[in-house]
Nucleic acid binder design. Sequence first.
DNA 1: CTGTTAGCGCATTCAC
DNA 2: GTGAATGCGCTAACAG
Lengths: 341, 341
Amino acid sequence: MHDGAEGARTATLSDVARRAGVSIATASKAVNGRSDVAATTRTRVLAAAEELSFTPNAMARGLLAGRTGTVGLLTGDLEGRFVIPILMGAEDAFGAGQVNVFLCDARGDAIREQHQLKALLSRRVDGIIVVGRQTDPRPSLGQDVPVPVVYAYAPSDDPRDVSLTPDNVAGGRMAIEHLISCGRTRIAHISGDPAYAAAQDRLAGARAALAGAGLGLVGDPMFSAWSEHWGRDAAALLLQRHPEIDAIFCGSDQIARGVLDTARDLGRDVPDDLAVMGYDNWSALAENSRPELTSIDANLQQLGRRAAQCVFDAIDGETTGVGTHHLPVRLVIRGSTIARR
Amino acid sequence: MHDGAEGARTATLSDVARRAGVSIATASKAVNGRSDVAATTRTRVLAAAEELSFTPNAMARGLLAGRTGTVGLLTGDLEGRFVIPILMGAEDAFGAGQVNVFLCDARGDAIREQHQLKALLSRRVDGIIVVGRQTDPRPSLGQDVPVPVVYAYAPSDDPRDVSLTPDNVAGGRMAIEHLISCGRTRIAHISGDPAYAAAQDRLAGARAALAGAGLGLVGDPMFSAWSEHWGRDAAALLLQRHPEIDAIFCGSDQIARGVLDTARDLGRDVPDDLAVMGYDNWSALAENSRPELTSIDANLQQLGRRAAQCVFDAIDGETTGVGTHHLPVRLVIRGSTIARR
DNA sequence: CTGTTAGCGCATTCAC
DNA sequence: GTGAATGCGCTAACAG
């Protein structure tokens, strides 16, 4: 039980020193494994520390060192599916290096974000990762933040900042190349909100790949919402208008799920008669459909780790190239494009 | 840009004091809004602070105060869908009270958890929330942690600890009561892994509600995995064996999605011919099915806030009752149990 | 090898 | 009202 009012504060180094019968300085050296301490003294100190369950005060340490061993993770919206894997990757990378992470959710509010930033700076974090929920550029925190800042997923709108974002253009290209390699030539595209850079980038990649193969999209790309409902409705319209279609590249797994639903209703066999691709590789959706969904994975956890690495490097003075870095994505093939046998 | 090597360290209070031509003590009082400072002096100090963009060092403050204004969020698995809303709720509740949150993911490893705990204590967090990913009891951190600990979602196995977990028994009861109120009497149950307390608790609640209405479950409850695939397979078997069934209560939304799929294949109309209920109210699934899923919501964000409140109270010495508290859940009615008109 | 001294940045006595 | 002094817990110089 933690002590409420009475004595027993948590032990300090001077408690340990007193109990071991040495000076504070010696105790410090012993605890920190410095070499210039007699072996016998060291064991005595360590024993005392153990008995008092001494834990060094990281704040006092940080005060001296000028570094705190903490970083801030500033996110606009924890709810977003994409933020979590990035968070995990970053926490993982930092955790291995004895760094702890402050989590701040600004809830998409710029004012709140300023408060959080202020709080992080007052905690003297050694660096900050800003995680957005879309791949559209977001406002920079500015150039006068006294610690390194790295933007993940949503790049900063200031090219002087360091930003890491998934390569959606490459993703669109890979998707189409995969479909073509499966022998498909009459390919349509159903995506989400056209205001998203992600939607436009994936389409651009898709178009480039099609053009490279001397092909074009069947019909106009269809944009609306990133939802299953839209996927169903769009597929119904599309398949009615262009029954010759042999593949649909979807802008998200949710949309793809809807497309699968409609294909089933219309008696179109997937993948033999119609190949369907998703995007995001959201396993809860992609691995539970009938058939399972081929998709593009943005390697977000990896992206989080890379962001952490950039912050580390920047803290050590090694400056990562500024600007927006587009990180590679990955094709995950499942039954919706290639029949299982 | 943050300064790499050269001068310009972040300003300290003594910088502010010097610039304002006052002593450190006076500067401190002015900055902290203490009353015993002349108005003119205060404005002068504040101006100086502004010009130097002075940010008080929270560590130095914490060193004096004995409190850090930080708490640890120790989770076994960030991947889990259930921990995120809890995290959000807690972060939200703390954020309002000027507290910052350390996020630690132990990745389900007990050793790692010990390390993380040690790190949090060394950072002198004022309290800790332990978030598990299942509602099964988990090992206690022990009674000798020097700060208050609250367990969220996964309760501690030690009754002397404070634990907050959703009331799955009530959830099961509410589900059945809703189905009965919809006029259903031949109700079956398909759930996930029977080793989960959640599965057993929901079933127990369901049985109690059925018994209260003089009813029983049709067939044996079916257990396997928390997946859509299982939902599809189980429903097929169930509806073949017991075609008279008029409602299926599912242990998760994923399972319910599978059940809906099979119902469609078999030509059973939902909800007229067959009512289907999910559990968890996972909106990505529940709001995108055809029809949309009635489900039980565990109010996890609320649970996170409550956990934060408990930690706050404990820090202030007000001890929340120890033991496991079962927090209320909520019925969310959609088209899978009541036809839209 | 060990202990003494001097701060890290700040809030709090208590004299003036 | 204001400022000099004290110390939170710890580490880095030195001096013994």
